[in-house]
């Protein structure tokens, strides 16, 4: 009984400290848009003698936890690389399990009282939705419709997504728009292409910070257009399910140093 009380007290203290720390961090400038490559779920599962799907479930829990942190820091937008078009090459059993997980979690998110509902988050599924199984498409449509009018924050779940696919579609749309004007305005600029990027269409601000976990130092076809200018890149060796405040706070501090340096110059 006493151990339970001590345990409860410790958890309560930890929660208070965490909340206070986030309030202090939020007193400085914070990134408007964070993009995350949630890498390392399967390696985390292997390391902990679990099956791949348990790794993905743990990864989803970390995402929920980090979204809460971002919300308390007043970060406007988070984009998470949930599933690459290339991931369809994986073992069909794993792909099916991932799709079941997506349908289940999107279903949960569309319920009243969910995290999105509670915090006023608009959810966008960014990518080739037509490639998703029918039930996932239905669940995605439902949650997008339900959260369309939320304005507090944005969550872009990129699935199935690749940046080259996004850039190609944006170039195609920019060309079509140019030809559709009367008379045709063929002077297409970077801005015209940027306006057709899926993230821009979903109302996202520019990406300030990109995080990739699990020690891989590549962008792997994620947000190439959005991250090739002044986005701070963070490659951390931690597997995504283990990612937490310990890794996240230095990222925010680095961003603040940049924002302060920029405003003072």
């Amino acid at each position: 009984m006493l151990s339970y009380l001590i345990n409860d007290f410790c958890n309560w203290t930890r929660k208070i400290c965490r909340h206070a720390l986030l309030k202090v961090l939020a007193a400085g400038p914070v990134p408007q848009h964070i993009a995350i490559v949630m890498d390392g779920n399967r390696r985390y599962a292997r390391m902990n003698h679990k099956v791949a799907q348990e790794g993905h479930t743990a990864g989803y829990e970390t995402l929920t936890k980090m979204l809460e942190v971002c919300y308390h820091l007043n970060i406007k937008c988070v984009s998470a690389y949930a599933f690459s078009i290339e991931n369809f090459k994986r073992d069909p059993e794993e792909v099916n399990a991932l799709m079941r997980l997506a349908a289940e979690k999107l279903g949960e998110l569309s319920k009243h009282g969910s995290l999105l509902d509670q915090y006023g988050v608009r959810l966008n599924i960014v990518g080739r939705k037509d490639m998703l199984p029918e039930d996932v498409q239905v669940a995605a449509r439902k949650v997008e419709d339900m959260t369309r009018h939320n304005t507090r924050a944005i969550l872009n779940l990129c699935m199935p997504y690749t940046s080259r696919d996004e850039m190609t579609t944006a170039v195609q749309s920019a060309v079509r728009n140019a030809l559709n004007t009367d008379p045709p305005n063929l002077e297409i600029t970077e801005k015209d292409i940027d306006a057709e990027m899926l993230t821009t269409l979903a109302g996202s601000p520019p990406v300030d910070v990109l995080i990739r976990t699990s020690g891989v130092k590549r962008l792997s076809d994620f947000m190439l257009w959005q991250s090739c200018e002044d986005t701070q890149l963070h490659f951390t060796s931690t597997y995504w399910p283990d990612f937490g405040l310990k890794e996240f706070i230095p990222i925010i501090l680095d961003y603040q140093r940049k924002a302060w340096a920029r405003s003072s110059s």
Partner: peptide
């Protein structure tokens, strides 16, 4: 930061 390096060519 990538400082404006061509985005198409940095896929992998």
């Amino acid at each position: 930061e990538l400082l404006g390096f061509p985005p198409w060519q940095i896929r992998l």
